[in-house]
Design a protein around this nucleic acid. Sequence first.
DNA 1: CCTACCGATCGGTAGG
DNA 2: CCTACCGATCGGTAGG
Lengths: 208, 208
Amino acid sequence: MPRRSVAQVDADRTVTLRAAVELASVIGLEGLTVGRLADELGMSKSGLVGRFGSKQNLQLATLALAVEMFRAVVYEPAIDKPAGRARLVAICEGWIGYLGEPCFAGGCFLTSASVEFDAREGPIHDAVRVALDRWQRVLETEAAIAVSSGELADDGDPADVAFTLNAIAVGTNCDYQLRRDPRALQRGRRAMASVLAPSLRRRPATAG
Amino acid sequence: MPRRSVAQVDADRTVTLRAAVELASVIGLEGLTVGRLADELGMSKSGLVGRFGSKQNLQLATLALAVEMFRAVVYEPAIDKPAGRARLVAICEGWIGYLGEPCFAGGCFLTSASVEFDAREGPIHDAVRVALDRWQRVLETEAAIAVSSGELADDGDPADVAFTLNAIAVGTNCDYQLRRDPRALQRGRRAMASVLAPSLRRRPATAG
DNA sequence: CCTACCGATCGGTAGG
DNA sequence: CCTACCGATCGGTAGG
């Protein structure tokens, strides 16, 4: 019999990664050091390394948890809504809420990681890219449905809609984190609403 | 008589800071280390420290040069245009050009520095904040003129216009740096153009 | 501007 | 999981 149950190992891992996400959101994923995180958790460096094998694996696991948290707060609550404009509106609502009361002290983790690693090569850059590509694809899919159903006043390229919504979110995060002025959230919300302005030509389909 | 002329000292300082900006744009302003920069310049650590006094002063000087470069590329070319919408259009043109062919390998320096230091206290955070506040004020001033002259189709709050243009630029930078796909620049340009769409109600004043 | 050096911390390993 | 330790690098100083 193992000295600690599988469930306990898993719980410990989660506690560790939560602390890692919190710390890395402030000092960056590269600034995150094994020694400092071990200190914060009241354990030894070697104990921490033992759990993840290397700093890079710790960074990748930290990023993966942050992605999962984003998904849970921004995407999950919206999947009950009908695909297309209604779902995009729900996503944006969750998104602004996430930006205003982030799970992390240092603001949107994915934005920070993207800026930090966009000019470096390696597994972390690649993982960030994969996560953001996936998210862009989600937005684009919903935008395509909204456009083809005639739900949007501005029925342009779905990729443009996805791009602009993401840009507004990233810009809102930067502004709000730097100035801590809640007006940034209002402005972000208004700008998103403008992109998603409903078509006046016809109502969203209610059936079929 | 000094061993090196004042002009020579100044030129050396500029060479040093250009290298610092280049390096920091990739590895971050905090990741910039005295030893690594000294290596790159073929000089000793203590020689480099001697020029700036401390790492923090080096960081502040590096940031100041990056701000000056931004101003020269994005703002300066637009000041010949008439205030209001025309000047905003010129600024956005320069801005997209700057994002597409950045002076720095790692993309917009101010965006990187803002994300890196938004959750930390200290002189660097404050300097980033001052620079971005100044830039926001420039945008807002031009937007206020454009709105009050009836030049914009969407004549809302000038602060909203400034916020959204900045958000689009920040989002475009992140997207382009991560994916290196020039379509991000086209999308950014289109999104800015949409914010600055000219009023159909009346033409921009040509005199008075 | 240099060499030589300071104590602290880095990621990681040996050995238990 | 721990202590003890590795070589490398950190920011910075002493002394010239």
